[in-house]
């Protein structure tokens, strides 16, 4: 099993516990004692993670991806493909489904688990056609007054020749404009990596949530370190400086809420992570129910319009808060 350095104590106890349960199931007292220790360890370690460690959890190879959540959260799901212009981009998946009986459109970045699948999904880095597919599905949802759920998990939009040739920037820009005018409720959740414009391009929800150990940033810590420190190994410092954790973003008022993860991170228990996410999604959708299209647009405009901090030395020198 793959695990992160700081997870080692947890993994060791987990393995011991597994062994005990398999071969000596009658040693109940010992099992209970170990379970207690495990739960304490998880809490201890995961409540004190640095920004860099959180980034590693957000990118954990066992972390649940969009399709892992979809299969657990929706009663029914039919995947739809293609941007109708160039090709189907497997880095973004989307489709129609039912969430406890309510029809919804779900769109999300998709990473791969195996090496082969990682390549197929392009490591969750979409090309323009991925964003154009996402937009097509949002527009479809709008026609049928269905809420849209977007799940964000990407290192960023792909920086490659084909992507530039087909208008990566234009595709992202167009999505931003279009999302600002959608007449249906949209809930966006950063489930893993929120990589800059490539994340925002499907993330302009009426409500934006982050999983407890997700990150969301204007640039990856590695990229930031390479540019500002001129040294890619300073990523740990950059992660700290960029203030990219869910707690930071909630504090800044950029996101509306944090979705709890199971003890020790979402990768330890996909089912529980999905249950917690589903709860949060339903709460957000309920809060947006019955709001008219025009009102949604106005509120969304105000939401994003007010983001930013600067000094107004003229009228009043109030620090405008997001």
């Amino acid at each position: 099993m793959n695990y992160l350095d700081f997870e080692r104590p947890i993994v060791e106890v987990e393995e011991k516990l597994k062994e005990l349960k398999t071969y000596y199931p009658h040693r109940e007292r010992e099992i209970r004692r170990l379970e207690k220790r495990l739960s304490k360890l998880k809490t201890e370690i995961f409540s004190n993670l640095s920004a860099w460690q959180i980034a590693q959890v957000a990118r954990h190879p066992h972390r649940p991806y969009t399709l892992d959540y979809i299969s657990r959260i929706l009663d029914d799901f039919i995947e739809l493909h293609g941007d109708r212009t160039f090709r189907d981009d497997p880095s973004i998946v989307g489709g129609l489904g039912k969430l406890d009986g309510e029809s919804v459109m779900v769109i999300g970045h998709q990473k791969g688990r195996s090496t082969k699948e990682k390549v197929f999904r392009n490591f969750g880095m979409p090309h323009p056609e991925g964003y154009r597919k996402a937009l097509r599905l949002m527009k479809l949802a709008e026609r049928f007054a269905m809420p849209v759920i977007t799940l964000i998990d990407t290192p960023g939009a792909y920086p490659g020749i084909g992507a530039e040739e087909r208008g990566q920037a234009e595709a992202i820009a167009r999505n931003l404009e279009a999302m600002s005018l959608l007449r249906i409720p949209m809930v966006s959740v950063v489930i893993g990596e929120g990589g800059s414009g490539g994340a925002l391009a499907i993330g302009m929800g009426d409500r934006v949530l982050m999983l407890e150990y997700a990150i969301y940033s204007v640039i990856s810590p590695e990229g930031c370190a390479a540019i500002l420190w001129k040294d890619g190994t300073k990523a740990e410092l950059a992660a700290e400086a960029l203030k990219m954790t869910a707690k930071d973003l909630l504090h800044f008022g950029i996101i509306d809420g944090i979705v709890k993860e199971p003890p020790g991170g979402a990768h330890r228990d996909h089912d529980e992570a999905a249950r917690l996410l589903k709860e949060a999604l339903k709460e957000s959708l309920d809060a947006l129910r019955g709001v008219s299209g025009e009102e949604l647009i106005q509120k969304r405009y105000q939401k994003y319009r007010s983001m930013g901090r600067f000094i107004d030395t003229h009228g009043s020198d109030t620090l405008r808060d997001s």
Binding site: A173, L176, V218, L242, K243, Y304, R305, G308
Partner: peptide, 13 residues
């Protein structure tokens, strides 16, 4: 940081 990223959303809106 994230405030800059959100200027993309703000200007597009």
């Amino acid at each position: 940081g994230i405030f800059s990223l959100m200027q993309m959303a703000k200007t597009a809106a």
